[in-house]
Design a protein around this nucleic acid. Structure first.
Lengths: 377, 377
DNA sequence: CTGTTAGCGCATTCAT
DNA sequence: ATGAATGCGCTAACAG
């Protein structure tokens, strides 16, 4: 494979000149043309590995997430990727599976590869250690939660408030035993959402029981099992908030298994799903700006790359409640057929702004905004 | 950041000895221990970039896919990843967005980074050019379709037959105007599935119209639009086969918009979906072994890595039809309530083998196998 | 088993 | 504006 020496020889110039042509140094246009022709002839591709060694930095950034099968992360990844590409960086997606060891391996790789930066969804507040990266000057941005090991840039959704508004909505609808299926205790998103859930109960004046909480794993099966356990209680809940969409799918399946159908039992969930409309009745969701979080994280990373010493920032993006039939006990009579007409009727009550049909997650959502929509915060 | 010379000095040995300790050369255990201690002390991490330059190969392989939001690819990615990790390779996920230019960039990167190998879902049969990689000895495995530029290892699902069986099923159920919403013409998966669809029509003896075909983009919105167009025809179809699950979601949404509910209009789709059970009525699917395809592709890659000159192989994995209510016109009367009992009743008719609950896609599927299941092929 | 040495391909001084 | 020379950190070849 041709290298710059070959190109230099073919073009009758020095290797340094070739390098300058490639990287935008000052070269006479006549010589530059010769170099470019030679590159073409030889099919020369600059060796990124050598360049990386010499420059002590690469052009790829690592995005470390906990579950590639979670739509939240795929949307987030698109946001990161779109911003990164605009800056000529490649994104390496690393699936840490919520496993601190696997995550540590990827962090090691990021370090050893001298990556341009790392965007991480920390597997654990306590165990995730990014100080090694930071010490070497590799910018790190956390999504969702900031690891305890260091104060770094963080971008999250307004989880606490989103859960608060959703729970409040369920209580307002008249549900009295509202349960929560949340994620692992180590997840601060799960914790924040749980906090919002509990706050709504504290602030509610309606008579109600001590709210039930089940911890699951943010996955379909976990939601299924947790819902099953809640339903087996002596006093099962009459409504449930799940803190991500995969668990919502599992929870719904558990309900169907027992012939329970919303809004008889109220259901609301964090996370957008393209299937929210397809289930009967349509699912009430708390919209998470996953794509925007990814964008913001990438932008923060670039900012820090060029100004390493600014104070760590914490960005909180708003969520938004999309009320659909699954949580509308008050409209129960009309929801069973759930016809198109019934759904359209809600259109008039749209409150939130329509999002533009950008290249990100919006593209895959169809017409999911035509629901009663309550901006959160 | 410490390098091997620092470590060598600290341990009182030569850099070569340090390298040997790191890479499994023969070193006396006493010296090896000293080296390891020194590594620990200095927080030494071997520089992968330098190693890559010296060895002329890296330990990462690229997986180039066309849509990270498509569950098929995320499941596939897990398959690749699990196999790769077992061989101590990292996987870089590249989202080419079905865009040949973007794809070409990633192929360039793979080349310039001297990657260990590339697994690619080609964006285009004609434009995708992997010869540069091949010339440099980088093993390439294609998923789904083999680019025309070279004969390489390929692994696919049995698309033609899967579509054939599904279409046949729809015809057997008595649907007479069965349409197909398939993917881009450039996609051989789409083409193969369409072929199976057409073959089923040719072989059927039932009276029927010339089958309608709509081309879409394998995404939710595309399915929605295509279904809308089909329904606007003078003679709209009475059943539809979609060739992936995202388009199925879109198509269902279009049906709901018009108050059409399966199995009044029959619906079947390629691709597994964790929400197949959540929609009413439950969705008939052609199971694609996405995780297994990923595994097989990675294994093929490793085989070729160690034996570059064996003949290119072509692996075809079986699909399987999972019949649920959305395509059972014959059982229409009982499907409207679609209770748990109704679903359970089908359990007795399970034909296919249960899959073990492995680490791959199976984990997220809950109990999706309890349906009437017809092995394909 | 161990140390010395050279060079992977490039970007970057420092001269000119 | 250009070229010669150097070294990024590591591993492989060779010598001992």
């Amino acid at each position: 494979m041709a290298n710059i020496y070959d190109v230099a020889k073919a073009a009758g110039v020095s290797p340094a000149t070739v390098s300058r042509v490639l990287n935008g140094g000052s070269v006479s246009s006549e010589r530059a043309a010769r170099v470019r022709a030679a590159c073409e002839d030889l099919g020369f591709r600059p060796n990124r590995v050598a360049r990386g060694l010499r420059r002590q930095r690469s052009d790829v950034l690592a995005l470390i997430i906990s579950d590639i099968e979670n739509p939240f992360f795929t949307a987030l990844a698109r946001g990161v990727e779109d911003v990164a590409r605009a800056s000529n960086l490649s994104v390496v997606l690393c699936n840490a599976d919520d496993n601190p060891e696997k995550e540590a391996e990827y962090l090691d790789v990021a370090l050893a590869e001298h990556m341009a930066g790392v965007i991480i969804f920390p597997a654990s507040l306590a165990e995730t250690d990014v100080t090694a990266l930071l010490d070497r000057g590799v910018p790190v941005v956390a999504v969702d939660r900031s690891p305890e090991s260091a104060a770094i840039d963080t971008v999250t959704a307004d989880d606490e408030n989103g859960a608060y508004v959703a729970t409040r909505h369920l209580l307002d609808e008249g549900y009295r035993r509202v349960a929560c299926i949340t994620g692992p205790r180590a997840s601060s998103a799960a914790t924040e959402r749980l906090r919002g859930f509990l706050r709504a109960h504290r602030e509610s004046e309606a008579p109600r029981r001590r709210p039930r909480v089940a911890y699951a794993d943010f996955r379909v099966r976990g939601g299924y099992q947790a819902m099953g356990e809640l339903l087996d209680l002596a006093e099962p809940p009459d409504a449930v908030l799940t803190t991500n969409s995969l668990m919502a799918a599992g929870a719904l399946e558990a309900l169907y298994d027992r012939d329970l159908r919303p809004p008889e039992i109220g259901v609301a969930t964090f996370g957008d799903t393209f299937w929210a409309h397809l289930v009967q009745p349509a699912l009430t969701t708390v919209h998470q700006p996953a794509y925007e979080i990814g964008q913001a994280a990438a932008e923060l990373l670039f900012k820090r790359r060029h100004a390493p010493d600014i104070e760590p920032q914490r960005l909180v993006l708003p969520t938004r409640l999309q009320i659909r039939s699954s949580s509308r006990r008050s409209a129960e009579a009309q929801t069973t057929p759930a016809t198109s007409a019934g759904r359209r009727a809600t259109t008039a009550r749209v409150v939130g702004a329509e999002r533009p049909d950008g290249p990100g997650r919006a593209r895959a959502t169809g017409r999911h905004d035509i629901d009663q929509s309550v901006p959160v915060t």
